[in-house]
Design a protein around this nucleic acid. Structure first.
Length: 225
DNA sequence: CATCGTGACGCTGGGCAGTC
DNA sequence: GACTGCCCAGCGTCACGATG
């Protein structure tokens, strides 16, 4: 499950959300819709929830474009803390039971392995392909075909998402860098800036020193729950 | 046709120095 | 502590070919 918020900056609310989400849930707080598209199309989720505390999403957020093409999508505006808990609880109950789960493919197994080892510095195409006993060449192609993005790109975006969560929690850039599997702060900063648009420290700043809110309006009425 | 290996090439990851 | 620039080894991707 993927939670997406369009408004980086509200530290208190972000902390509340973080505390309520299960480990199966990925949280994205970003002002960049292109980033959302990239993440949402990188893999299939049980549900993608677009949530905003405001009356509407930013005008540049064409959330409906993602509804038809990708994972099941929920759009909620005027969200309150209680809504987060409700949606999260609902998703836990809706999660497929082991007996009725779809066939467990090797590729799914590899994604699980990546999830479990995302922050390990030795996570590579080689280690993952070894885990499911296929050649790295073959796995690289399968990965590209199934996810639509390259292996490296996928790992980077997942790590940066984890990094953002840790930065929201108040951890230092250096600490976050090592926590998500990078050995070099220089490199981590570069990757972070490339994917997020701002440096890790600047991102941290936007969380703890909220910027003036962006104009919020959306032409077509979204579901308001 | 599906799966996999090889070689070439471009990019990433990481080290280092300098700066703010 | 954090960021930028430069450099380079190694990894990932791509194109192509081999095998069953």
């Amino acid at each position: 499950m993927l939670f997406i918020f369009p408004k980086p900056g509200d530290c208190e609310e972000s902390s509340k959300i973080m505390s309520q989400l299960s480990h199966q849930t990925q949280l994205v707080i970003t002002g960049c819709f292109q980033e959302v598209v990239k993440i949402a199309t990188a893999r299939r989720y049980h549900l993608i929830a677009f949530l905003t505390f405001d009356d509407a999403f930013p005008a540049s957020w064409y959330v409906h474009e993602l509804v038809a093409n990708h994972s099941p999508t929920m759009i909620l505006t005027k969200v309150r803390e209680s809504h987060i808990q409700l949606v999260n609880d609902w998703m836990q109950r809706m999660a497929p039971c082991p007996e009725c789960a779809e066939e467990h493919s090797l590729f799914d197994e590899s994604l699980k392995y990546i999830d479990q080892n995302l922050c390990e510095t030795d996570l590579s195409l080689q280690t993952v392909s070894d885990h499911i006993f296929v050649s790295k060449y073959h796995y690289s192609r399968v990965f590209q075909k199934k996810t639509g993005v390259g292996f490296k790109e996928y790992i980077m975006s997942r790590r940066i998402e984890t990094a953002k969560k840790l930065l929201i929690k108040g951890e230092s850039v250096t600490s976050v860098c090592y926590s998500v599997g990078y050995n070099d702060l220089t490199h981590f900063s570069r990757i972070f800036k490339r994917l997020v648009g701002i440096s890790p420290s600047a991102y941290r700043k936007t969380i703890f020193e909220p910027a003036p809110s962006l104009p919020m309006s959306i032409p077509s009425k979204a579901y308001t729950g």
